[in-house]
């Protein structure tokens, strides 16, 4: 069993990993004996804008923003990737015309992504949150909140928040249209509206103009 042997060697090997070969060179990696210690992972830096490793930012859809981010946070890397020399090297095997096509493509992609983000934001800002008071029987009501998910709110967590705030049951259910909504026991319309306006807890970023209150009564009864 190699595992047992490892234990004896461990003390000796403890200092070893520092001078291990660069794991990014696979041909070397095949030659080395299995390490006794777990090999440390390669620390990869990811771009905060597009989540790619920065060397791939140029293929992403937010190149200019990525570039700015890299320059600000990791100027050494920025110099490495975008200095004149590096740009020259990159041209290496690619014909000039292919390169220009690539650049055009990237620009197009970027414009598209920006337009898409804009449209998404617009949609988000125009979508409404509906708070509905539903009569369950004469004096009892439930409150249903619909449309929160458009504002990137985790419905389950929001329901939990409502439940603990009002000390009642609150759950995520599907309404007859198949959309998710939060149902809170009891009539808490106004309190919910207040919470949304304050942006309490996780209910952030909802413009209060987009919130509307509705009332749903059972058809038979008319008294309030």
């Amino acid at each position: 069993m190699p595992a047992k042997k490892n234990r004896d060697k461990k003390a000796a090997a403890a200092t070893a990993p520092a001078n291990e070969p660069d794991p990014s060179a696979p041909s070397e990696a095949t030659e080395t004996q299995p390490a006794e210690e777990p090999r440390p992972p390669v620390q990869v830096l990811y771009c905060a804008v597009c989540t790619f490793p920065p060397e791939y930012c140029e293929f992403g859809s937010s190149f200019t923003r990525c570039k700015a981010w890299l320059q600000e946070n990791h100027s050494d890397l920025f110099d490495k990737f975008y200095s004149e020399e590096a740009l020259q090297n990159k041209l290496g095997t690619l014909s000039v015309e292919a390169q220009s096509r690539l650049e055009k493509d990237t620009a197009k992609k970027e414009a598209k992504a920006v337009a898409k983000a804009d449209a998404a934001l617009k949609k988000k800002m125009s979508s409404t949150v509906t708070i509905k008071r539903i009569e369950r029987n004469k004096r009892k009501h439930v409150t249903s909140i619909h449309g929160l998910e458009a504002f990137d709110i985790d419905l389950k967590k929001a329901a939990k928040q409502f439940a603990s705030k009002f000390a009642t049951g609150a759950s995520v259910t599907k309404n007859p249209q198949g959309q998710d909504e939060i149902v809170i026991q009891g009539d808490v319309c106004d309190e919910v509206l207040e919470m949304i306006e304050e942006g309490a807890g996780m209910l952030k970023g909802i413009p209060s103009d987009n919130v509307e209150i509705k009332e749903d009564k059972k058809k038979k009864t008319t008294d309030d």
Binding site: P23, S24, T30, R39, P41, V42, Q43, G92, T93, L94
Partner: peptide
């Protein structure tokens, strides 16, 4: 994190 675990192939730019 562990680039050596799979054999490498490389594509051009």
């Amino acid at each position: 994190k562990y680039p050596y675990i799979l054999p490498m192939v490389k594509v051009d730019r």
